[in-house]
């Protein structure tokens, strides 16, 4: 689904992303882990076409992201780190807007997403102004908005920051279901417990890959009991190398 080789993003003399090579398959939940400024968001922004790579290649569904940007944009859904639905629109109007800019008919799309709306408890608040919704609901609404055009590839940049643990669990339940239905999910997070939900994770530091693999296998490899420990260990090792 996603292929990158020698992906680099340079801002002036600062290398935000340095030589990232990825191969992400269909239906995979792929996690980006790392501290703030490690390069997670920059990588995701390049993958969904918001930033142009300084060098290297990105292919999505075997299409070059620069040459076929139009085609690719139809295939991806994106939920940014910052909550970015319109606060002065009702929940349903936000969804209508996203259906509109992706040119999909609203009613069928809403019908298709009904199970998720139910699961998220959003069905009853569709007529509410988005600004009046609690944070957890806003996050869920953002995810639904990103799914309006039924994209095979979904990017979630820190989707659960500022959400309580119970809501986070529910959120991940839906993400899991989406992956099961064949969607590829790219997610970044700094909650280590969430990394457990991912099929594979990449741990980044200073724009570089320091570990890549299945969470369980990584834990075994580094002899760590949990992701938190693994994370510190991985970064500690790389610190020693420097």
């Amino acid at each position: 689904m996603i292929h990158t080789s020698h992906l680099v993003k340079q801002f002036g003399s600062f290398k935000a992303v340095d030589e990232i090579n990825l191969e992400i398959g269909r239906g995979e939940i792929f996690g980006f882990l790392g501290a703030n400024g490690a390069g997670k968001t920059t990588t995701i922004r390049m993958l969904c076409g918001l930033l142009k790579p300084s060098s290297g290649e990105i292919r999505i569904d075997n299409l070059d992201i620069i040459k076929h940007s139009e085609q690719i944009k139809h295939k991806l859904g994106y939920m940014s780190q910052k909550f970015s639905l319109y606060p002065d629109l009702k929940a349903i109007e936000n969804l209508q807007f996203y259906a509109g800019i992706y040119r999909v008919s609203f009613e069928p799309a809403l019908k298709r997403l009904e199970p998720i709306l139910e699961q998220f408890g959003l069905s009853s608040i569709l007529k509410t102004l988005t600004q009046d919704l609690p944070m957890g609901y806003k996050q869920r609404l953002s995810l639904v908005a990103a799914l309006m055009h039924d994209p095979p590839l979904v990017f979630l940049d820190e989707p659960t920051s500022g959400v309580d643990p119970q809501a986070r669990r529910e959120f991940w339940q839906v993400i899991n279901d989406l992956a099961q239905s064949g969607k590829t999910i790219i997610v970044s997070t700094h909650f280590m417990d969430e990394a457990e939900y991912c099929h594979r994770v990449i741990i980044m530091q200073d724009g570089r890959e320091v570990a890549l693999g299945n969470p369980a296998e990584l834990k075994q490899e580094y002899g760590s009991a949990n992701m938190q420990e693994l994370f510190l260990k991985v970064l500690g090792v790389s610190d020693a190398k420097l």
Binding site: G49, L50, K73, Y78, S80, K82, S84, Y102
Partner: peptide
């Protein structure tokens, strides 16, 4: 400022 432009920019608009 609100970040909604980014959401539009990832779309085919």
């Amino acid at each position: 400022e609100m970040g909604t432009m980014e959401q539009i920019l990832v779309s085919p608009v």
